[in-house]
Design a protein around this nucleic acid. Sequence first.
DNA 1: GGTGACGCTCTCCTTTAGGTGAGTATGGAT
DNA 2: ATCCATACTCACCTAAAGGAGAGCGTCACC
Lengths: 142, 142
Amino acid sequence: MSRLPFNEPTIQRARRIAETIPPAECDPRVEALVNDLIGRVADKWTMIALEVLAEHGELRFTQFARQMRGISQKMLTQTLRQMERDGMVTRTVHPVVPPRVEYRLTELGASLGAAFCGVWIWAEENLAKVEASREAFDAKTE
Amino acid sequence: MSRLPFNEPTIQRARRIAETIPPAECDPRVEALVNDLIGRVADKWTMIALEVLAEHGELRFTQFARQMRGISQKMLTQTLRQMERDGMVTRTVHPVVPPRVEYRLTELGASLGAAFCGVWIWAEENLAKVEASREAFDAKTE
DNA sequence: GGTGACGCTCTCCTTTAGGTGAGTATGGAT
DNA sequence: ATCCATACTCACCTAAAGGAGAGCGTCACC
């Protein structure tokens, strides 16, 4: 039961659309997995966490929180757990009181950070262009 | 009135946390803008749209939809509008019936696509590692 | 004159994201 | 005895994301 990408104009028409371009490129399984992984990894907080951890080497929970402005405790825990599960960070619990937990990047995490590096640079370089474009767009449609 | 990143343990204690690491790096305004732009641009659909458009050069609305599996019509319109506003794509409307609208990358869009390229490669290369890590993690916590 | 094509937009409605404020465990310091 | 620190977790709640399905406008066609 193959689902069409979205509902047809009105339900009984357009049973089929002319296939001007093949429906998708190659291996749909791998493609889906990669898209999925991208969705997970191209997350704002994940990217920022990667950044600050790469910068500081090792961070404790509250230090982390202070570096990531605007994140809630819950989100931070969640992001960090997810990253741990994905093998981006290691989480070391020192069994002392008060608790001491240290996070550091794995090799995998560092490599993703490096891959994102280009995007950060792009963002810094093109911030002005994007803002200008937005203003122009908004002025046109006003 | 500076807000703390999240609530203190119980409200009347911990008025202040020792500042072992300076609260943030440098220019907070630029940093915030860049983080914001990252949040906008590091969006799953934006990344995928960038990819397929880079691959096909020029796409009409329904062609686009067919390339982006699982996206709803609403999301596609929204993503495309946003990208147009940000100056990533141009939208050309041919005043014919039935309507014909073509999307293509701008230089800015292409440069972002190039910046993301590293992330795609990373995702393809490290898919297996991430999956292995997830399995190990889930097995441990079960 | 009914239907279909295209690229939307509009109205619901459900799901998810994410914030808030509190609680918990533990041992050392006061 | 009480307090405090840390790194959480939990319950609750609101806002935002995003899906489903329909409708629209216009012309060419059968």
